[in-house]
Amino acid sequence: MSARSLRVWAWLHKWSSLVCTLFMLLLCLTGLPLIFAHEIAHLTGKAVELPEPQARAGQAPLDAVVAAGRARHPDRVVQYASPDEEDARLWYVTLTPRLDVTDDYRSVAIDGRNAQVLAEPRYDEGFMYWMARLHIDLFAGLPGKLFLGLMGLLLVIAIVSGVVLYAPFMRKLDFGAVRQASGPRTRWLDLHNLLGIVTLVWALVVGATGVINTWADLLVKYWQYDQLSALLSPYQGQPIVPEAERAPLQRSLEAAQAHQPDKRLLFIAFPGTAFSSPHHTTFFMQGNTPLTAKLLKPVLVDARSAEVTAAPDLPWYLTALLLSQPLHFGDYGGLPMKIIWALLDVVTVIVLGSGLYLWLKKRRQGGAATRAAGAAAAGRGSR
């Protein structure tokens, strides 16, 4: 590689790293507790659990479960309902002031065996909420997400350019060598390069999946415009089906389950919400294996007749989004994978911090050298 090419790659690595480093440090620090969000909820008593004395009871009709949530907040409308990931007998009903509101919601936990309200967990307050919002959008909504996506792209550029620069640099040293006798800056440079290479694949995966996740809102809207609108064209212009005219929700669920017997329910989107249509109740089904559980199958059920209207396959870009979301937080292999993700996260913090230290140290040394040269020139001039 020519000297000019190396200078270009060095410039790319320097400035892409400098621009994104502080934000990447923020994302690594806020992402660390989010890796263990489920475990933290159980340790802090935030997780809702079913009373076990009724463990052998049957299942209440889904209509009664949703009605219990609605009765808790009669001034709100139901947007979504979902069974708990670990215990399908526990249900959560999400209510908002209006169907077009997404940032003011109440979640009601309901015992699916007897339709009794158990708790109203708040997911819009507390330490984990602050960590999640800082990590997802910096409390700035879609502009914040897209900005963090840009920082993620700069991280990918920094990683690729760092690999390009690492190859000629390591021709002079053994792999993994950390020079102890050359001063602290050289030791940190060697450690920065070594840890950067060790975490290379992980950082690329987390960086790339993070970028994809920031596009989630736009991808869903494009899917609604590109494919869902074509399926719903026969119902265009019709108002939202009133609750009084809807078929029993339990019958609609049974129709969706009969249409996809090899899948289980993830969540229900009610008519008029962002993931459904004014005329349908949409049941999002998932597979039963660790991989297929991340791939969703929407089943659109006519809200009046409880008949399945369509069950489209999700486009490739939404499939990529769904696969990237759990991979971003190491949510494929249980607790062992989460621990590995956390350790790599900590190492990445060291890489980012050492890179910032090396730049500041070099800048100070360069400034000191410039001042010394100026002083020497001034001394010669005075003579």
Rank of each mutant, 00 (worst) to 15 (best):
167 A>P: 02
265 L>M: 06
137 D>P: 11
264 R>M: 11
32 L>I: 02
201 V>F: 12
320 A>I: 09
279 H>W: 10
246 R>T: 06
200 L>V: 11
260 Q>R: 14
89 R>H: 12
93 V>D: 05
105 Y>D: 01
216 A>Y: 15
107 S>W: 12
340 I>T: 13
60 A>E: 00
369 A>L: 15
248 P>D: 05
328 H>M: 04
246 R>Y: 09
306 A>F: 02
63 D>K: 05
81 A>N: 02
134 L>A: 10
53 P>A: 07
7 R>T: 04
101 V>R: 13
83 P>R: 04
27 L>V: 12
9 W>V: 13
383 R>W: 08
228 L>C: 10
341 W>C: 08
179 R>S: 07
266 L>S: 14
313 D>I: 04
49 E>C: 03
33 P>G: 02
130 W>V: 13
237 G>Y: 02
119 A>H: 10
30 T>D: 01
49 E>G: 06
167 A>E: 08
356 L>F: 14
215 W>E: 13
322 L>M: 14
205 V>Q: 05
380 R>W: 04
46 K>M: 12
157 I>M: 01
94 T>R: 13
149 G>M: 07
159 I>E: 07
3 A>N: 15
309 T>K: 12
222 Y>N: 11
196 G>D: 09
199 T>M: 07
366 G>I: 05
31 G>F: 03
352 L>H: 02
121 P>I: 01
313 D>R: 04
2 S>E: 09
264 R>T: 15
316 W>L: 12
349 V>P: 00
82 S>W: 15
268 I>A: 01
144 G>R: 05
153 L>H: 02
188 W>E: 06
169 F>T: 13
181 A>E: 14
313 D>F: 01
183 G>Q: 10
358 L>Y: 05
52 E>G: 07
86 E>G: 13
191 L>P: 07
109 A>R: 10
345 D>I: 03
255 A>P: 06
323 L>V: 07
77 V>E: 03
335 L>V: 15
356 L>A: 10
164 V>K: 11
319 T>Q: 08
28 C>L: 14
60 A>Y: 09
275 F>H: 14
143 P>T: 02
172 K>P: 07
184 P>S: 02
142 L>P: 01
126 G>C: 05
348 T>R: 09
145 K>C: 09
94 T>A: 12
196 G>E: 04
36 F>R: 01
162 G>Y: 07
59 Q>W: 06
82 S>V: 02
